Simulated assay, not measured.
Amino acid sequence: MMRHLVMFRRLPDVPAQPELEAELVERMRLLPQRIDFIRGWHVAANELDRPICWDYLLDSSFDDAESVARYLPHPAHQALVQDLKQYFEWVAVDYTA
């Protein structure tokens, strides 16, 4: 099993837009409906206001590294990435569980 973790936060030079942010997060939550080989998917919002914290976490799982490699260029994922990058920055960690 390969885990794919991503943390998101609003870009520092982008003003907060709560409606847009909510729409982007909802699209993240619904992505497994468009990619059938995702095995696990959880999007959570940060609950504590600390400078070290990012805004959201995506905790996902795939069968193996090859599945992650298929997911990254998937058209549904790439369409979302194009919109996310206008509002969020992110970091990721991929590891075998």
Rank of each mutant, 00 (worst) to 15 (best):
E47L: 08
D64K: 00
R9K: 10
M1Q: 10
L30C: 10
L58N: 05
E47T: 15
R29Q: 09
E23F: 11
E23V: 09
V81E: 04
D63F: 00
Q86V: 12
R9V: 08
D59L: 05
A65N: 10
C53H: 07
Y95K: 07
Q82R: 14
E21R: 06
M28I: 12
Y56W: 04
L31N: 04
H77G: 00
V93C: 09
V6W: 04
H77F: 00
L80C: 01
P32W: 04
A79R: 11
M28K: 08
F37W: 06
C53M: 05
Q17H: 09
M1T: 11
R27Y: 01
L24F: 03
Y56R: 02
Y71K: 00
D55Y: 07
V6K: 04
A97D: 14
V25C: 09
L24R: 08
A92Y: 01
Y56T: 13
I52C: 00
L84Q: 11
M2S: 09
Q33A: 01
A22M: 12
R9D: 06
N46E: 04
Y87L: 14
F8V: 13
P51R: 00
D83W: 08
F8E: 05
V68K: 03
S60F: 03
W54Y: 11
A16M: 11
R3I: 15
E23Q: 15
P32A: 06
E21A: 04
V68C: 11
R70C: 06
V14S: 07
V81P: 09
P18Y: 08
Y95C: 10
V68T: 10
K85P: 06
R27A: 09
Q17N: 13
E23L: 14
E21T: 15
R10E: 13
R3C: 12
R3L: 13
F88N: 08
D36M: 00
P18V: 13
D63A: 11
Q33G: 09
G40P: 02
Q17Y: 06
S61G: 13
L24I: 15
V6T: 06
R70G: 04
L80F: 00
P75S: 07
P12A: 10
V93Y: 03
L31T: 15
R29F: 03
R10H: 03
Y95E: 09
S61A: 13
V14N: 02
W54I: 05
Q86M: 10
L20P: 04
A22K: 15
M1F: 11
R50E: 04
A65I: 10
A69K: 05
E19L: 14
M1E: 10
E19F: 00
I35L: 01
A44Y: 06
P75F: 06
Q82I: 02
W41K: 12
C53I: 08
W54T: 08
D94A: 12
M28G: 09
E66I: 01
A44L: 12
Y71F: 00
P15I: 07
H77R: 00
R34D: 08
A79K: 07
G40D: 15
V81K: 04
A97Q: 12
L30R: 08
R34T: 05
L48E: 08
Y56I: 12
R34H: 07
D13G: 14
E23P: 12
E89F: 02
R50F: 05
D83A: 14
L31D: 05
M7G: 10
L58G: 08
P51L: 00
V93T: 14
N46H: 00
C53F: 07
E23I: 12
L24D: 04
A97F: 07
V91E: 02
